[in-house]
Amino acid sequence: MLIYLARRLVLAAITCIAISILTFIIIRLPPGDFVDAYIANLASNGSVVSADQAQAMRREYGLDQPVIIQYGMWMSRVVVGDFGVSMMWRRPVTEVIGDRLWLTMAVSFSALFLTWTIALPIGIYSAVRQYSLGDYAATLLGFIGLAIPNFLLALILMYLGFRYLGLSVGGLFSPEFSQAPWSMAKAWDLAKHVPLPACVLALAGTAHQIRIMRANLLDELRRPYVVTARAKGISELHTVLKYPVRAALNPFASSIAYLFPYLVSGSIIVSLVLGLPTVGPLLLQALVAQDMFLAGTIVLLLGIMTVIGTLVSDLLLMWIEPRIRLQGRA
């Protein structure tokens, strides 16, 4: 088991390095660089940048060096925690991302939590009472949930919230807290603002997970071990929860890894609509401006999160699945 863990950790490290290289290459792929984009932007405003100035800027950011050297310089700083300077914001990348990373995680995990607490019970109900009225209702709502674009729902909820409840919608903080330093009051304010974006983000995922849970469980309910459990005389609820549901949970544990990046990238439009200070919109801006250190850092962080998520889901699987835990000892 320790060997298994060690192997996963080494693999995770290698994956992270590969991700960083890929990230860098992909960001360098479009023609031109940040300075070109910057000059074009200034030119559209009527200003002119001289060739000397452009050259100076390139030298400043190391853009005149070959790609490999650029990557080496970047990575040598990244490993000591310095992610470089955002060319667009002219501030250190860590400062630009700042709280946004934690806020993104707060929103994403709330959405994830909401997805599971809603989807699992409904999925179980749908499977156990297949073709019942409740099952059909859940199916219908599920498909509607899948079909409605997130941002549309965000707009509708914003409108309803503003029109009928007089809420300050949008953002993760009330205006008076947005620039304030962290305090209990600010945290509470955040807690009040998280549910709406979390609901919006959870919608499609919930619909999807209901279907997965239903299908998995329907499969498991037909297995002979369920009959065995019933024949023991234990109650139906206990039977279903202890045996088939446990077996049907496996795919959920293994899907944790990719849910997080899915939530972050899926949240870009919603974040723009709701004005959420998350990393999604920041990534979009950085990519448009070809701010490679900022974009690179965000993509790298997302990659690392995915790797960590994979590790977590591996551990979870080991915990709920004795066949993996006892590999080689059977």
Partner: peptide, 22 residues
């Protein structure tokens, strides 16, 4: 439920699948 298992026990065909692996 008291009869099932308590008064009448059932033995299964497939010892592979009749027990939960979990």
């Amino acid at each position: 439920r008291g009869v099932r298992g308590g008064r009448i026990g059932l033995i299964f065909q497939e010892p592979m699948t009749a027990l939960s692996v979990h």
